[in-house]
Simulated scan of single mutants.
Amino acid sequence: MSRRRRIYEGKGKVLYEGPEPGTLIQFFKDDATAFNAKKHDVIEGKGVLNNRISEFIFEHLNRIGIPTHFIRRVNMREQLIKEVEIIPLEIVVRNVAAGSLAKRLGIDEGTMLPRSIIEFYYKSDELDDPMVSEEHITAFGWANPQEIDDIMALAIRVNDFLTGLFMGVGIQLVDFKIECGRLYEGDMMRIVVADEISPDNCRLWDIETQDKLDKDRYRRDMGGLVDAYQEVARRLGIVNGNEPPRSGPVLVK
């Protein structure tokens, strides 16, 4: 395999230059991190499952008219994506009180929220991704008011889709995080969903048992991370119950 130029490496993925201008290859690593990488391990098979689950979700988003950076899956660990200018925000949509929201506001975890809540966090590992307001976002030029409106509209649509998707397979969508980017096509620019959507950035609870099927299993030292991710993939019809997560091709580094 020919050597490809590495564009960026994050906690869970590596971006390489793509085969055509305006494209990138997104490679899913097996790294598991929490608390902005203060906790870090390598869990075999995790990247494969995240790739497959994210592919499944992004294909459906594209199909129903929610714009994303996703083009197609290349192999078990790689996706071909459109190159976008990432907006330095994490957009969190919460349906049920959990995690930092429950702790911050003193709400019992598992409490249904009166309505879905959208929060913004500034992407900065050094600052532990601080929560920010729309005033901060516009004052510092991270996004303008129209872009914020577009981002929130996308987040609401993604939440509606994911809530129904997971409910149909017996999973409650507690909350999730997305990232968005600016996609330039000629003289046009539009905001699209980027990064990934997988159990790494969703809280997913079994509707009947409340078992956690997401990265909280790693954050809270519960174990069984890959088994939980594989259960999500099995319920979505992506893998069968006996299919182990395979490593697949690995890029030459």
Rank of each mutant, 00 (worst) to 15 (best):
M189H: 04
I197C: 08
G106Y: 12
K123G: 01
K177L: 05
L225V: 13
T138G: 00
E179T: 06
I117F: 11
N50K: 04
V239R: 04
D187A: 06
I156N: 10
I43M: 08
V232Q: 07
V93M: 11
G12K: 01
I71P: 04
G186H: 02
E134S: 13
L154I: 14
G22T: 02
Y16I: 09
N159L: 08
E147C: 08
G47A: 03
N62V: 00
A143M: 10
M112G: 03
A97I: 02
I87F: 07
G237M: 10
A233N: 03
R63N: 12
F161W: 14
K39S: 07
I107L: 15
A32M: 12
E44T: 05
T163S: 15
H136E: 14
R190M: 13
V239D: 08
G65A: 07
G224T: 05
E243C: 07
D31Q: 11
L213E: 01
S54R: 03
G110S: 13
L204T: 13
P88A: 00
D41Q: 10
K212Y: 08
R6L: 15
L61V: 04
H40C: 05
E59M: 08
K13F: 03
K46A: 03
K13I: 01
N95G: 15
D108V: 07
F28C: 06
T163G: 01
F161Q: 03
L113T: 05
E109H: 03
P19Q: 02
R3T: 12
K123T: 00
L80A: 09
P19I: 06
G168M: 05
V84S: 06
A98I: 00
P145K: 10
G170A: 08
A153K: 15
Q230T: 10
D31H: 13
D206W: 05
N75G: 11
V74K: 13
V93A: 07
P114F: 06
V250H: 09
T23N: 12
M1Y: 13
M112L: 15
V96Q: 00
R4S: 13
A233W: 05
E90F: 03
G18S: 09
E55I: 00
A34K: 06
E59S: 14
T68L: 00
P130V: 12
E185K: 09
L236W: 04
T33F: 09
E83I: 06
L251R: 14
G18A: 10
V93S: 13
V193N: 02
E147G: 10
E179N: 12
L101G: 05
I207Q: 14
I53M: 01
G45W: 03
L162R: 01
A155P: 02
A102G: 09
V239T: 09
L165Q: 01
G224Q: 07
L165I: 07
T23F: 07
M76N: 11
G164M: 11
P114A: 14
N62E: 08
D214N: 10
Y16C: 01
N50Q: 00
I151P: 10
L236M: 10
Y122V: 05
G241N: 14
V132H: 11
A194T: 15
N36G: 08
I87R: 00
G12Q: 05
F70V: 06
G47S: 09
Y218S: 13
R246A: 12
Q146E: 15
C180H: 05
